[in-house]
């Protein structure tokens, strides 16, 4: 399914994998997460505390929101009082109210569930955060709010990010390095470094860079877009 992939994520670096559906992005991410083992090749990770946010919030429906956020901390043996305190603090920064924290996930709106899922990932202070199209089902207002929260947490902990997305604008906005994948077999066809610091990327800049980016022949080929006239 995947062929000749060499991918390194440095400490504190944000890498975005973009590509069409079915090109093996998710497989690659699951390999990196250790959820799958490769048939051939090796995966080496020196990250001690990886965390992942999935496309769906995937909260445990029988645990209240506060306990869901503290799940990773519980797995690390953090005591109940301490993990509730940390989870509540993080949740408040994420815009969840005390009322939301006492509810079961089924009683929360989709947006609140996504915030809780992001908080759960941040709760373990990850040095590597894996994002599996985590924002793709959200409305643009919530997206930009979660982008800001992500940027804030990254700045605070220096976590590396490996994200997969089919939203070029999201990649341009968040990543230090963008890798373009194409399908069958999945391979990396282009690499692009974004040097502007994340904090300095305003809307106009993101639009301009995305527009420029989408004109690239590799991108057009990977997404099976027709070649531009005169290009």
């Amino acid at each position: 399914m995947l062929e000749d992939i060499e991918l390194n994520v440095g400490e504190g670096e944000a890498v975005a994998l973009v590509g069409p559906s079915g090109c093996g992005k998710t497989t690659l991410l699951n390999l990196a997460a250790g959820l799958l083992t490769p048939w051939e090749g090796t995966i080496a990770s020196s990250f001690a505390r990886p965390a992942m946010m999935f496309q769906q919030p995937r909260l445990l429906p029988w645990k209240r929101t506060l306990a869901n956020i503290g799940l990773g901390l519980k797995a690390r043996g953090v005591g109940r009082a301490e993990r509730d305190r940390q989870a509540a603090g993080l949740a408040t920064r994420m815009g969840l109210t005390a009322d939301d924290l006492a509810k079961y996930p089924g009683a929360l709106s989709g947006g609140m569930q996504s915030r809780a899922a992001l908080a759960r990932a941040f709760a373990v202070a990850p040095d590597l955060l894996l994002l599996d199209e985590a924002f793709s089902a959200l409305d643009i207002g919530l997206k930009s709010e979660l982008y800001a929260l992500l940027a804030g947490e990254r700045a605070a902990h220096g976590s590396a990010v490996l994200m997969i997305t089919h939203d070029l604008m999201e990649a341009v906005r968040l990543a230090d390095r963008i890798l373009v994948m194409s399908g069958s077999p999945g391979r990396i066809v282009a690499e692009h470094r974004v040097d502007t610091p994340v904090a300095a990327r305003d809307e106009a800049w993101v639009f301009a860079r995305t527009a420029e980016f989408i004109r690239w022949p590799e991108i057009r080929a990977a997404f099976a877009l027709p070649p531009l006239e005169g290009a």
Binding site: L35, F54, R58, L60, L71, R120
Partner: peptide, 25 residues
């Protein structure tokens, strides 16, 4: 299966998988 992945990703011990994920379901 998605919740099992969550359990693995967050490094839940066998005991926690049993009491927090398997048994309630």
């Amino acid at each position: 299966g998605q919740l099992k992945e969550v359990a693995r990703m967050f490094g839940l011990s066998t005991w926690m998988k049993l009491t927090d994920v398997y048994l309630p379901h």
